[in-house]
Amino acid sequence: MNRRLPVNFIIGAVLVALVVGTAALSLVWTPHDATQLTISNKFAAPSSTHWLGTDQLGRDVLSQLMAGARNSMAVALVAVLLGGSVGVALGLLASAIGGWVEDGVMRLADLGFAFPALLFAIMLAAVFGPSLTNAVLAIAFINIPVFARVTRGAANQVWTYDYVLASRAAGLNRFAISRDHILPNIAAAIIVQATIEFAVAILAEAALSYLGLGAQPPASSWGRILSEAQTLMYIAPQLAIYPGLCIVVAVVGFGLLGDGLRDMSDPRLSRER
């Protein structure tokens, strides 16, 4: 397999590596303590000690962005893993049993789709109170129907293959077949979807935090930084631009990576290119 990698995959992978690398680095090292206030040094211009300057409370902007990256990534990761697992399980179940179970799961998924996803997350956070945990749960919840539908579609395809019929002939029950044959053969589609949903989750987290429904002080995230900087737009526009850029880079990066993975897993698409 020495096919050339798709361009979108390469660009996406570089951007994702940058963002994830930064978030990982912040666990062990940031240039300054992200929460340390130095009022005397507020709105400092970029310098050798503060590469991106400081904010209205004299906190180091780069350190804050790095710490924010960590929270944004963690929220997105947990939310996608949680929502994805439930969604994949439901999709596999629907596909394996069929009949009214399948209909039921899919109608519930339709219900999920009919709700504007972000609005739903905001509603959940509003009802159960603003906290990072609730933000994660809300984002996970809106991911369930997406994964359920993708999984069920791909699984139904695999169920028609002869090797699945052969396994039924061998005496395997539906759950064993789902585990041994269906899941491994649809894993690629699910991973692609997860990557794209990761980008959506980052955006959702930023939106929730921006509205004050996500990360609570002193915890930081890109959405929170953005929301704090908003009031200072005319005094220090750069404070809003930096987190905005971070969000764009992360979302575009994961989006392109997902697209690229899809192209690689579907030989028909890549040949047409």
């Binding site: 293959y161 002869d162 090797y163 019929l165 052969a166 396994s167 002939a169 061998a170 005496g171 395997l172 041994d180 044959h181 491994p184 053969n185």
Partner: peptide
Amino acid sequence: RQKFQMVFQDPFGSLDPRRKVGWSIAEP
């Protein structure tokens, strides 16, 4: 089911591409 088994038409579709041949044969 172990007493009645089936061979399918498409030899490219009746074996799980992600499993080793021995694994598939032992499945029943």
